[in-house]
């Protein structure tokens, strides 16, 4: 009896709220995809600043900025960041909708994490690679661009993919500024009939499908980018 009631409610919520839930799925995917891509692009720049060795006064200031940025963003919850960004920008006269503020927040957040991921990736590349590039006359920037980064990104692929999966789940906190993503869409449906458990079970299953599918696709991508040729390490 209980079970038929449970599944009955699930069916009812899905059929009544299918449009909102589908929209929620779209927003969650949009938020995590844009967040990861934008975060990755900015993180490429930030990790370059962070790992650059020979720097002048400007470089030192930039490095200080990046270090502070990473420390603050990684040390505070994204939910708090979302609220601060959303309302402080509104106070400054930026009239943005919750989704845009959400995209901004998740990008800012992901940038901090991926900066650290890429820094690790860069440090995992043997220093001889950079030195050899410099020795044939490449500038520091070209050496990083053509030699070090391709290897650093390859080494970091698993962690970058992981960040995307984390984003799928963690963007649920953006409900605090009113973004209607998967969690919020399901919650609203559940609240109507006081059926929170049923609604959250729907949300859980949707999240699970999204994360499993993503991790499967990322594995494939990783294999492709990771090693075009099966690596055989020689004794030398």
């Amino acid at each position: 009896m209980i079970l038929t009631g449970f599944f009955g409610w699930i069916g009812r919520i899905i059929s009544e709220y299918s449009r909102q839930i589908l929209l929620g799925i779209g927003r969650t995917l949009l938020l995590s995809l844009v967040g990861t891509v934008v975060g990755f692009i900015i993180a490429c720049l930030f990790s370059y600043i962070k790992t650059k060795k020979e720097t002048g006064i400007v470089g030192k200031i930039l490095k200080g900025f990046v270090n502070g940025y990473v420390t603050i963003i990684r040390g505070t919850p994204m939910m708090v960041q979302a609220l601060i960004f959303y309302y402080s920008f509104k106070m400054l006269g930026v009239n943005w909708d919750p989704l845009t503020a959400g995209l901004f927040t998740v990008s800012v957040n992901t940038t901090a994490y991926l900066t650290e991921v890429l820094r690790g990736g860069i440090e995992s590349v043997d220093e001889g690679q950079y030195e050899a590039a410099r020795s044939i006359g490449m500038s520091g920037f070209k050496s990083m661009l053509f030699i070090v980064y391709p290897q650093a990104i390859k080494n970091s692929m698993a962690s970058i993919g992981n960040e995307f999966i984390v984003n799928i789940k963690d963007t649920s906190v953006l409900n605090v500024i009113g973004v209607i993503e998967v969690y919020n869409a399901c919650l609203m449906a559940g609240n109507k009939y006081y059926k929170v458990v049923e609604a959250m079970c729907i949300a859980a299953v949707i999240y699970l499908i999204m994360t499993l599918t993503s991790s499967y696709l990322l594995k494939k991508l990783e294999l492709r980018i990771g090693s075009p040729v099966k690596e055989i390490t020689s004794s030398n």
């Binding site: 001889g128 050899a132 020795s135 044939i136 006359g137 030699i147 390859k154």
Partner: peptide, 21 residues
């Protein structure tokens, strides 16, 4: 410095071939 280095070749003990190429 980059122009100078392009005219002075260097061969390293540990080869340092570019692993991504």
């Amino acid at each position: 410095v980059n122009e100078l280095r392009s005219k002075i070749g260097m061969v390293f003990q540990s080869f340092n071939l570019f692993n991504n190429l």
